[in-house]
Nucleic acid binder design. Structure first.
Length: 416
RNA sequence: GGAGGGGUGGCCGAGCGGUCAAUGGCAGCAGACUGUAAAUCUGCCGGUGUACACCUACGUUGGUUCGAAUCCAACCCCCUCCA
């Protein structure tokens, strides 16, 4: 792989976004000749995307930054089918209402990363339900179905895996890749979109689209996939204490989001800086080279930058400041997650374990008891011994009670 | 359609009449050590009440039994071989 001439592919190569490409040389040649349109599809399976999809968003952002037109494809139609890729069994069918709600949630995040509009380089958002929902079955089979051989479809990993494991693959799911291929061809026809990007698991689906475009429209289309990201410990990215690391603020606060990145393993810092921030590579190299505890500075930069992109400058600064106060000064910060308790109730006193449950730091009374008995529960930074210890107004300091579970999870309790 | 094997806690995977809330591993949580890292060591790891208890749980529904994840029957689903 030689150094690309096009700016976009240079970024892709240098920053580690590249896993596979259908024709790297040809794509480079094409991109160096002028702007183009590319798309990435997002199925509407949850109310928000999580960090697993962040790399794709960054790809679109770079694509736009390097002078090209990004297209965000919402899978309003394909979500009704369900992508069988990488799954052992069919996913539950989502109702149209759920899909619509999910789409509304997912849409929000893109405005933060892309500039939408009607201009040449402006991002465009489309929904494949617009063309999939009214497909005529017979006409579709005749026009497009004839280009897919079962023989070939059986060779794709997503299908092969199911067959080898002898897990059922329904005809419904089997059609997913055809429809995704059709999406690509359709986006070429509508918007001269010549590149589809996606995670490495999408390779088969993407290749289908490339071939379909060539057969139906004699178009030269390209596919490019990004690596599946795991942490250095081999864990798939995107899990945090509470669950997935969502991108939408109403599902995961900016503070928790910032914390997620701040807690990156040493070995991942450089890689993540390249993938999830836009810092110049020279700067990243310097940060990456920090040794020992120094590398914490790099983690802060990482958390600041990623949070700034996703939640905005103010939220990032606030999270950083909250962290500084909380962890470096050991002081109280107003911006920690907060729950309120009725004044009268607090005055009467609440058992410590119950308070931890109320604060959302643990899921059950039993868990709270175990946490406290294990020495992991603190009230105002002092470990408590007895789960049943009453906490009341006497614990108020500056009008709040600070609860801590373990070393990193803090919540403030305020009377109201 | 016939013969056989199997469905166990988030996952993998033991258990095959009581001592089973169910061995073990992974994941997770906490403590120690640190740097809000990794590795390591230790504890915890269904719920409610914190002894004892009770509830919920081993595909579903019934049955046998003082007592079942364990035995029986029917049903559902998966797998293997034969047709």
């Amino acid at each position: 792989m030689t150094t690309p001439r096009s700016e976009f592919l240079r970024v892709v190569q240098e920053r580690g976004y590249m896993h596979q490409c259908t024709d790297w040389e040809a794509l480079d040649k094409r991109l160096s000749e002028g702007p183009a349109a590319a798309y990435i599809g997002f199925d509407c399976t949850a109310e928000s995307l999580h960090v697993g999809g962040l790399m794709q968003i960054m790809l679109l952002r770079w694509w736009q930054k390097t002078g090209n037109k990004p297209i965000v494809l919402m899978g309003g139609g394909t979500t009704r089918i369900g992508d069988p890729t990488g799954k052992d069994e069919a996913r539950k069918m989502l109702t149209d209402e759920v899909i619509a709600r999910n789409m509304a949630g997912i849409k929000k995040v893109f405005a933060k990363y892309l500039t939408f509009g009607d201009g040449a380089g402006d991002a465009l958002m489309v929904n494949n339900a617009d063309w999939l929902d009214q497909l005529n079955y017979i006409a579709f089979l005749r026009d497009y179905g004839k280009h897919f051989t079962i023989n070939r479809m059986l060779t794709f990993d997503s299908v092969k895996l199911r067959l080898e494991r002898e897990q059922p693959l329904t005809f419904l799911e089997f059609n997913y890749m055809i429809l995704q291929g059709y999406d690509f061809a359709e986006l070429w026809a509508r918007h001269k979109c010549l590149l589809q990007m996606g995670g490495s698991d999408q390779w088969g689906n993407i290749v289908n689209g490339v071939e379909l475009g060539r057969r139906v429209h004699q178009a030269e289309l390209y596919g490019l996939t990004s690596p599946l990201l795991t942490t250095s410990s081999g864990v798939k990215m995107g899990k945090t204490l509470g669950g997935a690391v969502w991108l939408n603020a109403d599902m995961l606060s900016a503070w928790e989001f910032w914390q997620y990145w701040r807690n990156t393993e040493d070995a991942d810092v450089g890689r993540f800086l390249k993938l999830y921030t836009e810092l110049p590579l020279d700067d990243i190299a310097k940060l990456e080279a920090l040794q020992g505890a120094e590398i914490n500075e790099a983690k802060k930069v990482l958390a600041n930058e990623v949070t700034r992109l996703c939640h905005g400058e103010a939220a990032a600064r606030e999270a950083a400041e909250t962290a500084r106060k909380t962890f470096e000064e050991g002081a109280l910060s107003d911006n920690l997650p907060t729950v309120t308790i009725a004044t009268a109730e607090l005055a009467a006193g609440i058992p410590a374990f119950a308070l931890f449950v109320r604060a959302g730091l643990v899921a059950s009374n039993g868990e709270a008891r175990r946490l406290i008995q294990g020495g992991g529960g603190k009230v105002n930074d002092v470990a408590i011994k007895d789960p049943a210890e009453m906490v009341g107004n006497g614990a108020l300091k500056d009008g709040v009670i600070k609860l801590t579970a373990g070393k990193k999870r803090h919540t403030l309790v305020k009377p109201e």
